[in-house]
Amino acid sequence: MDLAFFGVQLLNGLQYGLLLFLIASGLTLIFGIMGIINLAHGAMYMIGAYLVWDLTMRLGNFWLAIVIAIPIAVALGLVIERLFLDTLYKRDHLYQVLLTFGLILVINEAQRIIWGGDVHSVAIPAPFDASLQLTDNLQYSVYRLFVMGVCLALAGVIYWVIRHTRLGIIIRAGAVNRDMVEGLGINVRTLFTLIFSVGVALTAFAGMIAAPLTSITPGMGDSILITCFVVVVIGGIGSIKGAFWGAILIGMAETFGSVLIPSIASMVIYLIMAAVLLVKPRGLFA
């Protein structure tokens, strides 16, 4: 493997990792603050991708599609939160697992009814539909660089919010001790709604910007969900920092795994998880 090829893989791994971070951060936030394990999180990623595909088809503009799709996804998340999750906050994880699993069945099937079972794709939008010539025979997609930039910017925003705002203090306190949040005299109800909306927005947005890079298929949310579980387990539940480094690690591992050892590529991330569990059963940043 020459250096340029290695560099491309590095970028790919980073880009995939950053995308994973957007999804995993929502997952870990929702768990850390709300105490909810949300299996339907991956389904929201899928919804994001399908929404943007559908709207791009109708409107002919990817960027406009994103602008319209985000509020739709968030509204859907809010309906779910108010209708179902509201009853689950104080209940055992088992019921959360079952109810959100039921939601997956409903959402996945609703997707089939609305958009069918075909595989779709979205064209890479202007002005990023170009490639960067790295060497004579290696190019790199500008759109991927753009996605990286957007993800990094969002990660920066999340970091800033958590470090420097009152909301951030609450989030950090909640990750350590959820009961403390209630003791801080905060309207928990509003906080939960806010956190859930942000989580849904992040994962749906990840689905949207990933749409031009991946094929849009039914069930695409399920596999990404499980990968993000691995990310969260490695990083430590409730930890945004853990989600970030876990996502980068898994992004790299999966990218390089599929290039270097394709025969067991799909296993690599689980092997890493097993290794982490052996050493630190609560995750690297817990």
């Binding site: 179902f84 689950l88 079952l98 039921g102 939601l103 069945l105 409903v106 099937e109 609703a110």
Partner: peptide, 13 residues
């Protein structure tokens, strides 16, 4: 699957 999903949600609730 929609019916099954709704059944499970109803059972939980």
């Amino acid at each position: 699957p929609i019916l099954m999903g709704l059944t499970i949600i109803a059972a939980v609730l």
